[in-house]
Simulated assay, not measured.
Amino acid sequence: MKTDKQLEQIFIFAQKKLAHDKTGHSFSHIQRVSALAKKLAHEEKADTFITLASALLHDTIDDKVVADSQQALTEVKHLLALLEVSPEKVAIITYIITHMSFANSLNGQEKLPLEGQIVQDADWLDAMGAIGITRAIYYGGHHAETIYDPTIKPRTNLDKTEYRNLANETIINHFHEKLFHLKDMLNTEGARKLAQHRDAVMHTFLDEFTAEWNAKR
């Protein structure tokens, strides 16, 4: 089966799986990540199929999004087998999507292949800038997080378990605990260039938020 047909079926699979997401990981997020990943893959001369398949599938197995991540991974492997994706490529794609998250990076993540680095960059870019601000607030609201409490300080030296403990997080602290770190964690030069503006947008927003919270503007 030609790769364009395979990607078409993977697209449809991911679209169905994420059609009703209310956490900020909807299929519109997947489409933006895929577009960014395609651009970066071209710049880095990476394998386009592995990059795009990983970008399309990366949130279909995320434990923030699905009830059973292992069952979801089994479904992904079954899909790729049905589409006659080679076992070698299936192994790379599944490794990427199970190791690329920010949460996994907190526990000393193993190095991703180039295609995985690109998808990770694209995913993290979509957590930054105006879109990133909106998604952070949307996700926090979905989980009934406190917007801001100046007596709750941002957490440091987080591991995956504590990072996922939303009882100890506020929406605004999420900027300090994750989002402001992303620009220095990106893998590719193209992503780092795009991140500069997005990071500046977030800092401007937080400066304005803080001033208004304290009734200074």
Rank of each mutant, 00 (worst) to 15 (best):
Q71N: 10
H174Q: 13
A55P: 06
I152W: 09
I30E: 10
G140Y: 01
P154I: 06
E88Q: 10
T3Q: 13
L83I: 09
L194V: 03
Y139H: 00
P154H: 10
A211K: 14
E43C: 14
N104S: 04
E177G: 07
K16V: 03
I96Q: 05
R192C: 13
T161R: 08
L73M: 06
E212P: 02
H142Q: 05
S26F: 08
I137A: 12
R164E: 14
K111D: 12
H143Y: 15
K178D: 06
K38G: 14
M100S: 12
I50M: 06
H142S: 05
L194S: 06
K45N: 15
E75Y: 00
I92P: 05
T94D: 06
N168P: 04
T74N: 11
A200M: 10
H42K: 12
H25Q: 12
F180G: 02
L166A: 00
T210I: 10
S28F: 10
I133C: 01
L82F: 04
D59Q: 10
A35D: 14
A81I: 07
I92C: 10
D62F: 02
S69K: 09
A144T: 12
N157S: 08
T134M: 14
L7P: 03
I97S: 03
D121I: 04
L114G: 07
R164K: 14
A127E: 15
I10D: 12
K45E: 15
F102R: 04
H42D: 15
A35G: 15
K216F: 01
T151H: 10
D121H: 05
D207L: 09
V201G: 00
L194Q: 04
P113H: 12
D47F: 04
F209R: 02
K22C: 13
F209N: 06
T161Y: 11
K77P: 01
T3R: 05
